[in-house]
């Protein structure tokens, strides 16, 4: 479904390539975990896949094929058609990613308003349905709230609702649980699993937290300094890490969470 081949990204302002030849693929309905420390290039990879990289500031080469279409070759208007419709994105901090002056419901249904001709009432109905899907209590009230009236966990659920409302083929999750506390984090992971199971949405889940990735993803790819150093079955990578960097990452997990072989 998604196939990234030999992706290179270089910012004009930097010497080193941010992403230096990365290849991976995601099958239909699969969740791929992408892990690595800050600055390893995982977020840049995600932004490139989402078509959100500022092309004036960075140079990309290689290919990003979404159902056979190379996103890197598309012009801005064609990319815009995909954003929010075929590709949904959920970012790290829900508090700053929501427009503080727009009601939550209007933001949840925004992609629908942009890409389809659905009526206002229909959009509202679908948005409330999506808010129900992400298990927000009292979705009708949430619809009319402003972001500052919700908690971080509630907001992140609403962000996920906004991203899945148009039933995208691919959901990019860039550290979606990092800013949340641990119990909320676990709930969000459960929710993502459920959405993947029920709606068959493929996901690219980015995190620096191996433990979180292990709970959600079957397959995992490990990035270091812009390169993919290891990729494979999550259990396999966890229990028999090949690359020294992966071994170090696993060693960095607090012992209580660390998997016992």
């Amino acid at each position: 479904m998604l196939e990234v081949r030999d992706l290179h990204v270089k910012f004009h302002s930097r010497q080193r390539q941010a992403v230096g030849g990365v290849s991976f693929s995601i099958a239909d309905g699969e969740i791929l975990g992408l892990v690595g420390e800050s600055g390893s290039g995982k977020s840049v990879t995600a932004l490139t896949v989402a078509g959100l990289l500022d092309r004036e500031k960075a140079e990309c080469s290689g290919s990003v094929l979404l159902d056979g279409v190379d996103l890197l070759k598309l012009q801005e208007p064609e990319l815009r058609q995909l954003r929010g419709k075929r590709i949904g994105v959920v970012f790290q901090e829900p508090q700053t990613c929501m427009d503080p002056l727009m009601k939550v419901g209007r933001q949840v249904e925004e992609a629908l308003a942009i890409h389809t001709n659905t009526s206002r009432e229909e959009r509202r109905r679908l948005a409330i349905q999506a808010l129900t899907d992400v298990e927000l209590p009292d979705p009708e009230t949430v619809y009319d709230k402003y972001p500052h009236e919700l908690s971080g966990g509630q907001l992140q659920r609403a962000m996920i609702a906004a991203a899945i409302l148009t039933r995208p083929a691919l959901l990019l999750l860039d550290e979606p649980t990092t800013a949340l506390d641990v119990t909320v984090q676990a709930q969000i992971l459960e929710l993502l699993k459920k959405l993947n199971r029920e709606h068959g949405i493929s996901m690219l889940f980015i995190s620096h937290n191996l433990y979180v990735v292990k709970k959600l993803c079957r397959r995992v790819a490990v990035m270091q300094r812009g390169l993919l150093v290891e990729e494979g079955d999550t259990q396999e990578v966890f229990y028999h890490p090949q690359h020294p960097y992966t071994q170090r990452l696993i060693a960095a997990i607090p012992t209580r969470q660390r998997p016992k072989p």
């Binding site: 815009r80 954003r83 970012f91 990613c97 503080p100 002056l101 992609a111 942009i114 890409h115 906004a162």
Partner: peptide, 26 residues
Amino acid sequence: HRDYVRTAISRGNDSRAALYRHALKN
């Protein structure tokens, strides 16, 4: 340059809509 503008773009807004629908009011 705020995150919510990036979110707006990720939903399919063009730069004009991101400016008038989101950034201007803020």
